[in-house]
């Protein structure tokens, strides 16, 4: 007999799930819609219905329920906006770029990169950002988006190729 799963109706278990999944799911939805308020609303509503259905959803199925519910809720309100991203406040070692040109143009380049990412299609953008920002593996992304790993890899490649097409002329070698 498998051990009985913890009940989601138990508040401590519910809180555990919330603290574990709320942030990553919200970011994922944000990369799709670009509206943090909308993303938070969607994810919170999904968690409210998780509570309402707590007796019929097992603990191990909660993650996939949340992602699926959010995806469904997202399709119900297709109001896409620009994704606002910012760069980490870390000091970058530009010597890697082997060209002093980059030193001057790096801030400008970063703005253009963000604009380019925003002009990607939603499909490519969500996959690219889940990988590059959230550091998720292609397997994890496939699980979240419901795609095959192969499809995730195609979208990743296409996204990078398009970014280079848009930004290539900015990068003087």
């Amino acid at each position: 007999m498998p051990k009985k799963e913890p009940s989601i109706c138990e508040e401590t278990n519910y809180n555990l799930l919330f603290r574990k999944f709320y942030e990553p799911v919200t970011r994922y939805i944000y990369y799709k819609c670009g509206d943090l308020q909308q993303a938070e609303d969607i994810v919170q509503n999904a968690f409210v219905s998780l509570w309402r259905l707590c007796a019929s959803i097992t603990f191990s199925k909660a993650k996939s329920y949340i992602y699926t519910a959010c995806n469904n809720l997202f399709y119900n309100e297709v109001k896409h906006q620009k994704v606002v991203l910012k760069h980490q406040q870390t000091v970058t070692d530009y010597t890697n770029y082997e060209s002093p040109d980059f030193l001057i143009e790096v801030d400008e380049f970063r703005e253009k990169l963000k604009a380019a990412i925003n002009s990607l299609s939603v499909k490519e953008r969500e996959v690219f950002l889940l990988s590059r920002i959230e550091k998720k593996t292609y397997n994890e992304i496939a699980e979240i988006t419901g795609l095959t790993v192969k499809a995730v890899e195609r979208r990743m490649s296409k996204a990078l190729l398009e970014l280079r097409n848009m930004l290539g002329k900015e990068i003087k070698i």
Partner: peptide, 28 residues
Amino acid sequence: YKQFRLINEESQKLEGPEIDVEAALKQV
């Protein structure tokens, strides 16, 4: 290659939005 590398490296330095999980939990 260098162009791809720069785009990839700069992309990895991006950050997602900040999210207040505890405030969200209270709201839920």
